[in-house]
Design a protein around this nucleic acid. Structure first.
Lengths: 130, 130, 130, 130
DNA sequence: GTGGTCTAGACCACC
DNA sequence: GTGGTCTAGACCACG
């Protein structure tokens, strides 16, 4: 899976990394059980500081997307969907972000159909790889 | 219209303010032509510094959501939806954000139906007030 | 001659007024010797404060574009082109403004031809009315 | 590149700074990809507050003249000349400013030739450094 | 009284 | 160390 870091983005590097790995899992480009490069390896590959990669990995572990296997290093994992609060927390975040996005969409003249079409496309885009 | 600022949020105060005003416009709680409180007034109401409010107002001005009328202070305005590039820029932003959101939704076990239902609700929520 | 004031412009009202009168003189819509409305008259016509009109008139007088005739009120006049420093002062101002404008023009990809064509058009536009 | 701030000018400090950097880019004294001093560095060099420099930098960023690269700080960049609306917006601004300038030029007794000679000189001045 | 500008000084996230 | 954010307090142009 290809990861691209944009040094000029306003989004912190560690977040860009985290987001792309999560997207990779969503798309199926990264399967549960698969190993990720070591912190140092990925850091040199991307030309960024190891601390930055480490921070991204830490975050992914806290979110349940990554586990540390003594022999195989960092391994992709699916967060337990049933773990208490996980679904609720995500739904709240989703609702918040959608509130702003839909408001902006309306202001830009989009209809519900327009908006749902974007949402559907984005969701199905995920299937292409998996 | 009620504005609530969360001092503990990781989102900068001026951005929270900007986002809530944009949401207000989307919901129709703020109509084009309507006056907003003065910088100082809103600052004391929210218990924050005037410069922070000023920064939010200037951002909104730059985005076309606000104009300063010498007689009536800060006035809500609709950015020209037809101005070239505006739609394209928003669609790109929308696509980017939806890519991450849908990935996370899938990982949390949501189906396309689930996701679209959230999107629809958020969009229709906008209509409640307007 | 029609004067339009934009209450939402970032340019101060008194300056908008001054600029339009100067432009009117340049275009020949206002001839030297012609009378201008009284401060109060113009203020009510434009729906602005008399102090604002007064400030514009004061500025125009200081620049030599206006003289006060006891019987005929404010009268258009041409500043003495030979008065010491007048030409030099304007040329310096012109050079300064053109430095920034040409820089921006170049950055926007304009050629010298493009730029001169805008300058010529603007200059000849003045002739239409005169 | 030398930057000089005039504390007594009526033009806000942050705008003077912005204008001089844009002029520098137009003249070729600042090449795309080149790094600018840090906010704090430039602030102490010019003897002004860092927030003022920061404001200028953020304006330049919004206009596309600057990008902040996490490794190299603030980097000169050329705004996409082809981005929709950019050319049109600049041409409108140019037309407006030229209307006033040509009017004043005529009133000061300049001919079209005189005026174009100033414009040409200003434009070619840009080439000297590049 | 309004917004715009500027300062001094502080804290924080990121790298 | 960097830029980004926030505060408190001040001055000024504008109307």
């Amino acid at each position: 899976m290809i990861i691209k870091i944009n040094q000029r983005s306003e989004i912190p590097l560690y977040l860009q990394l985290r987001n792309q790995i999560v997207t990779g899992i969503g798309k199926g480009a990264l399967k549960p059980g698969e190993s990720l490069p070591t912190v140092r390896q990925l850091a040199t590959d991307l030309g960024i500081n190891s601390m930055t990669v480490s921070k991204a990995y830490q975050l992914l572990k806290a979110e349940g997307f990554l586990e540390t296997d003594r022999r195989r290093g960092s391994v992709v994992s699916l967060p337990d969907a049933n773990r208490p609060g996980a679904a609720a927390a995500f739904e709240e975040k989703l609702t918040d972000e959608l509130e702003l996005l839909t408001a902006e969409a309306k202001v830009h003249g989009m209809t519900l159909q327009d908006f749902l079409s974007f949402c559907t496309n984005a969701f199905l885009e995920m299937e292409v790889v998996s």
